[in-house]
């Protein structure tokens, strides 16, 4: 464990908690892409099946349980409890265009052709594009609530910190996982446009609105 990975995990945890609290406190999921949240729940489910097979550490196990629990709770709030506030018309990204290619790629390019490893690889590839429905929804509505932008910033920052963690681990431990690194670079690049808007607008107290 190094400081970059620890802060990456804490940033990821913050993002998940911010979103869950935002929906719970405001009793509304307006502006939130339910499709992205379903993809994240799939990402955690397929990645953390090793909860059943191997124990790494208390930290590892507890964080995985928290991620899975919160992501399913978020999906439940969006599609069940606060369903009336779900903006389905703007959450129209075709996720099958993500899941099918990612599934195919996971079968073709992986470290080991075993079920758990292919599911882990699928989860890594899926996570890199899972935010697309949310970014697409913001481009369609032309704006995002400030709390949603903080959620997105933490979500994007987490994998950016993981990139630094991988540089650290390669240099100090000689460890690198090309699949996770390439997917992590793609994932972080997808946030660049948002990062620019976040820094130039939200951090200056303005609302995030896109030229519609």
């Amino acid at each position: 464990m190094n400081i970059f990975r620890l802060f990456g995990d804490l940033s990821h945890l913050a993002a998940i908690i911010i979103l869950l609290l935002k929906i719970w406190k405001s009793r509304s999921c307006a502006g939130i892409s339910g499709k992205s949240q379903i993809l994240f729940a799939i990402v955690f489910t397929t990645r953390y099946l090793d909860l059943l097979t191997s124990f790494i550490s208390l930290y590892n196990t507890s964080m995985k349980m928290i991620y899975i629990g919160c992501s399913y709770a978020t999906v439940y709030l969006i599609y069940a409890k606060f369903r009336a506030t779900y903006d389905g018309n703007h959450d129209s990204f075709r996720v099958e265009f993500l899941i099918v290619p990612v599934g195919g790629l996971a079968v073709l390019i992986n470290h080991d052709f075993s079920l758990l490893e292919i599911l882990w690889t699928f989860s890594i590839y899926l996570e890199s594009v899972a935010i697309l429905p949310q970014l697409f929804m913001i481009s369609k509505t032309g704006e995002a609530e400030t709390i949603t932008t903080h959620y997105l910033f933490c979500q994007g920052l987490y994998r950016a910190l993981y990139l630094i963690n991988w540089i650290w681990r390669f240099y100090f431990e000689g460890f690198f996982d090309m699949i996770a690194i390439v997917a992590g670079v793609v994932q972080t690049i997808l946030y660049c446009d948002f990062f620019y808007l976040y820094v130039t607008k939200v951090l200056k107290g303005k609302k995030l609105s896109l030229p519609a």
Binding site: R5, R47, D50, I56, F175
Partner: peptide, 10 residues
């Protein structure tokens, strides 16, 4: 460097 046997990252 070889890939990890068990994935130790979240």
């Amino acid at each position: 460097a070889d890939e990890p046997a068990a994935h130790d990252e979240l």
